[in-house]
């Protein structure tokens, strides 16, 4: 069996009819854009997942003058923070309530206050509450706490989480639209290149058809040509996009709570370590990109050539 569609001398000379440069370069640019859009989509998805998951279930409660005694109706004496903690016991099962210890508090405030001895400062008590998944804070929590312990502040991360998640979702939608547009443009470019190739090889194709070449043979020859160009272009574009992507990843690392948060330096120290932080779904999408580009080119050309051949019986 002869090798299919490669090195076959049938007169189509597709390397001349479908010149490398234009289609290759345009697909490379499309591949570049697609890679960036994919990265954006992947990032937006990760952030959205983070905010709809862990971050949204966090609650921060500040109790000023924490250790001041609080007089209760039944006469027992507790401090204000103890009263708040007692109230928090009524939260849904599985809620983790944790009062930050003085060292934890010091670390939290270090950027603002420096490494001084803060014991003299009248710091509020900070209580971190992590709710189990699929539960929500009772709407009345802040009122209840304030009624018992005036001045208590409840900060619910979910409010921010909702907004950020909506933002992340619209970013995701934008990235999807960008990918669709890039795919559409790639299809059109391939269509135009194929049409040019068909026009310059019209007589040759008619002769081949007369000699008994099937539609799938002729369409396959053209489609392999554009698919090869598309694969090369997609690969080049993806590789070219990797440099800005790694830089972006480096800058985004602190926000995504990745371990290598070296914000002082723009250029990463360790490219290898940085490459390892690429999310697996993004890496997979990037690796598939050249194949998707090749498929778009192959499919478009198949359809175009077969439609064109219908003019011959």
């Amino acid at each position: 069996m002869t090798r299919p569609f490669s090195g076959r001398k049938d007169g189509l000379s597709l390397s001349e009819a479908l010149p490398d440069r234009s289609l290759f370069m345009l697909v490379a640019m499309m591949g570049f854009l697609a890679a960036l859009a994919l990265a954006g989509a992947s990032g937006a998805r990760a952030l959205s997942a983070r905010w709809s998951g862990g971050a949204a279930q966090l609650l921060t409660i500040q109790v000023p003058e924490a250790d001041t005694p609080l007089s209760t109706p039944n006469g027992t004496s507790t401090t204000r923070v103890q009263a708040v903690l007692a109230d928090l016991a009524s939260l849904p099962d599985g809620a983790q309530v944790h009062r930050l210890t003085p060292p934890e508090l010091a670390r939290l405030l270090e950027p603002w206050l420096g490494e001084t001895d803060n014991t003299a400062l009248p710091l509020p008590a900070i209580i971190r509450v992590r709710l189990p998944p699929d539960t929500s804070v009772p709407d009345t929590l802040e009122q209840t706490l304030n009624a018992h312990v005036p001045g208590t502040i409840v900060e619910h991360n979910a409010r921010w989480g909702e907004r950020l998640r909506a933002l992340a979702n619209s970013l995701l939608a934008c990235a999807g639209l960008a990918l669709l547009s890039v795919g559409g443009i790639a299809t059109m470019i391939t269509g135009l290149a194929t049409r040019t190739g068909l026009a310059t090889r019209k007589d040759i194709i008619k002769t081949l058809h007369g000699l008994g070449a099937s539609d799938s043979y002729i369409a396959g020859r053209f489609a392999w040509r554009t698919a090869t160009l598309g694969f090369g272009g997609g690969l080049s574009g993806t590789l070219a996009a990797c440099v800005p992507l790694l830089l972006l990843l480096q800058m985004a690392a602190p926000f995504a709570s990745a371990p290598l948060a070296t914000t002082e330096r723009l250029l990463p120290v360790d490219w290898q370590a940085l490459a390892n932080t690429i999310p697996p779904d993004m890496a997979l999408a990037l690796a598939l990109l050249p194949f998707v580009a090749a498929f778009i080119c192959w499919f478009t050309t198949q359809v175009m050539v077969r439609l064109w051949l219908l003019r011959l019986p």
């Binding site: 069996m1 002869t2 001398k9 049938d10 007169g11 007589d203 002769t207 000699l211 070449a213 043979y217």
Partner: peptide, 21 residues
Amino acid sequence: YQLMPDLSVADNVALPLRLQN
């Protein structure tokens, strides 16, 4: 004649057989 201008004489003549694999 309708020959393939870029192909050699032998490749032109081989075409019907090549198309039949």
